[in-house]
């Protein structure tokens, strides 16, 4: 079953084309990676999937709702995390999660916070203001916020940015477990190729707002005759796609 349907989606800012007619679907319980360099259109695509940004053309449907017009129907079953937005710095981690728990209508917010604090190792600083946390700790808190309502569709924009390799590995394991246990679908935008290879069932390659290639990570690596997804990424980012694929 398709939980996300993106159809000929475009976003223009005057002469600048940020996203250029991309189409894809996300099946229930799968993880789809959005890969591309800076300015490829990943964040813009995610913003349109959340209904935070209106498309210039095309449509996004999430859980059956048109995100341009009916997003209120499904926002309580979605969530996201991004380094481009923050949580109020003066509120403690617990206070922030309590506020968002209320906004998402989560039952037993204190219990849910306790569970996430344990699972994501936030217990040591759960009563500290977010502004006093390190970048890595903030990223973990942002992820806790994103998992607060156990979303059916989770959109993650660089979810392990600023995190040390050990913690990043734990978080990836947790995301795998979360997906297995809840059947959630994940759309992941990341620059970390090993993360994408590990978590994603399918990868969408974006360049200059266009969807230039797609496939299962291992299949892409083999099709491009490379040994890693990072090499495939470089081929695409530098427009060596055609000769590499041929």
């Amino acid at each position: 079953m398709q939980v996300v349907k993106v159809d000929r989606l475009s976003k223009r800012y005057g002469e600048v084309v940020a996203v250029d007619g991309i189409s894809f679907t996300v099946e229930a319980g799968t993880c789809v990676g959005l890969l591309g360099g800076n300015g490829a259109g990943k964040t813009t695509t995610i913003a349109m999937m959340l209904g935070l940004l209106l498309p210039s053309a095309g449509t996004v449907e999430v859980l059956g709702a048109d995100m341009a017009r009916q997003r209120w129907r499904v926002l309580d079953r979605m969530n996201f995390s991004s380094p481009y937005v923050e949580l109020p710095n003066r509120l403690t981690v617990r206070e922030n999660l309590a506020v968002y728990g209320g906004l998402y209508g989560v039952d037993d917010v204190p219990g849910r916070i306790a569970r996430l604090a344990r699972d994501l190792n936030l217990e040591a600083f759960v009563d500290r203001p977010v502004g006093r946390l390190s970048a890595g700790e903030k990223t973990r808190v942002a992820l806790a916020k994103a998992l607060l309502n156990e979303p059916a569709v989770l959109l993650l924009d660089e979810p392990t940015a600023s995190i040390d390799p050990d913690t990043a590995d734990r978080l990836r394991s947790y995301l795998e477990l979360f997906r297995r246990e809840t059947g959630a679908s994940i759309v992941l935008a990341s620059h970390n190729m090993s993360e994408v290879e590990r978590l994603c069932d399918e990868v969408l390659m974006l360049r200059a707002g266009k969807l230039v290639d797609r496939g299962v990570p291992a299949e892409l690596v083999s099709r491009y005759g490379r040994s890693t997804l990072e090499e495939v990424f470089l081929d695409i980012a530098r427009d060596r796609r055609r000769e590499a694929a041929e």
Binding site: A28, R77, V99, Y100, G102, G105, V106, E150, E181
Partner: peptide, 22 residues
């Protein structure tokens, strides 16, 4: 839709307003 949500969600305008007020 898939029964993905184990956490019970009981959103209401009053609750969201209360959360923002909080």
């Amino acid at each position: 839709l898939p029964p993905a949500v184990a956490v019970r969600s009981r959103g209401s305008a009053r609750r969201r307003i209360g959360a923002m007020f909080m």
